[in-house]
Amino acid sequence: MIMDGLYYLAGLMLIAGALFSLVAALGILRLPDFYSRMHAASKAGAVGSGLALLAIALVSFDAAVILRALLGIVFFMLTAPISAHLFARAAYIAGYRPAGGFALDEMNERPDAN
């Protein structure tokens, strides 16, 4: 009975993870400017693959697999923000700006701004 519950939970997590990936994909299509799209890709995307890994950890019943899945989750959580941050910085410095402009851009005022 408890085993069945675990399987149900894992199945729901898989579907939720897949839905988050779908929302992230929709987000990068729908959001109006590049920096906003980055939000969708870095958050929803990371949560999507993280939930799938968590589902594996729930139903594998094997310590090595569980630890590897958890390590994978930690790894994705660490790398997703780094790539988003680096990428936003590169795009900003290279002069990509949203078509509508920012409501407020305080980075513009810094001394080494381009």
Binding site: G17, I28, A41, A46, G48, S49
Partner: peptide, 17 residues
Amino acid sequence: LPDRVLGLDMLVAVAIG
């Protein structure tokens, strides 16, 4: 170009899933 690279990044995330 950044939009396309972001798409590739997203593609990797979906492929992992």
